[in-house]
Computed example of a mutant assay.
Amino acid sequence: MTTTQGIRTVLHPVTDLAVAKAVYTALLGVSPQTDSPYYVGFEAEGQHIGLVPDNGKQQLANPVSYWHVTDIEAKVAEMIAAGATVRQAANEVGGGRLVATLADSDGNVLGLIQDR
């Protein structure tokens, strides 16, 4: 069994990226580290908070917490064996980062991230 490195990333779907960016800047007290029309990301106190416009490829309906792992394929296999279902298979999103989402038996979305 592989272990996780904890939840360090949370992505939030937003309908108005400019307004959300202002709200999260006020909340976190820091400016975005990544600021683009398709993604705004903040680093605050060891957490990465991302804002994803509702037309983003992640197709988020609710915030998703991402568990950081050292071996995403092994963790996906363990979770499937335990009863989870794959929503989005592991894929590279840039910079060597792999991301996957699964759902537990109640439909709760669980994100996984592996940095290479």
Rank of each mutant, 00 (worst) to 15 (best):
V86F: 14
V64K: 01
V69F: 10
K75L: 15
M1P: 03
I49H: 01
D104G: 07
S65N: 08
Q47K: 07
E92F: 06
F42Q: 04
Q33S: 15
A103C: 08
T9A: 01
P32C: 07
A77H: 11
I72S: 05
G41A: 14
V19K: 14
Y24M: 11
G96D: 04
Q114C: 10
I113T: 11
K21V: 10
V40Q: 04
V19M: 12
T2R: 11
L110W: 09
E92A: 09
A22D: 11
Y39A: 07
L112N: 03
N62V: 07
D71G: 08
K57P: 02
V109P: 01
L27F: 13
L27Y: 12
I49M: 08
R87K: 14
E45Q: 12
T70Q: 13
H68L: 10
F42L: 09
G96H: 05
V23Q: 14
V99D: 04
G83C: 05
I72C: 08
K57H: 08
H12F: 15
H12I: 13
R87I: 14
M1W: 08
T4H: 02
V14R: 07
T34H: 15
N91V: 14
R116Y: 14
A89D: 15
T9I: 04
H48G: 06
R97L: 09
E78K: 11
G111W: 07
T9W: 06
S36D: 15
D35H: 12
G83H: 03
M1C: 08
R116T: 15
V10G: 00
Q58R: 02
N62W: 01
G96K: 07
V40S: 03
N108F: 02
V86L: 15
T15K: 12
N91C: 09
L102I: 09
H68N: 06
P53A: 02
L102R: 01
L112S: 06
T4F: 01
T2L: 10
S36Q: 15
P53R: 02
P32Y: 04
Y38P: 00
P32E: 02
M79P: 01
V64Q: 03
Q58G: 05
Y39G: 04
V14N: 06
V23G: 03
V19A: 15
A89W: 14
L98K: 12
A90S: 14
G56F: 00
V19F: 09
L51W: 05
I49A: 04
T34Q: 15
G29K: 13
A77Y: 06
F42C: 05
T4S: 10
D106K: 02
K57Q: 10
L51C: 08
L51P: 05
E92S: 12
A81Q: 15
E43C: 10
K57V: 11
I113F: 06
P37R: 02
Q59G: 05
R87C: 05
V10Y: 03
P13T: 02
P13E: 00
P37E: 06
M79H: 10
S105Q: 09
E45S: 13
Y66L: 04
G6L: 01
H12K: 03
G94W: 03
T25F: 08
A100G: 01
P32T: 04
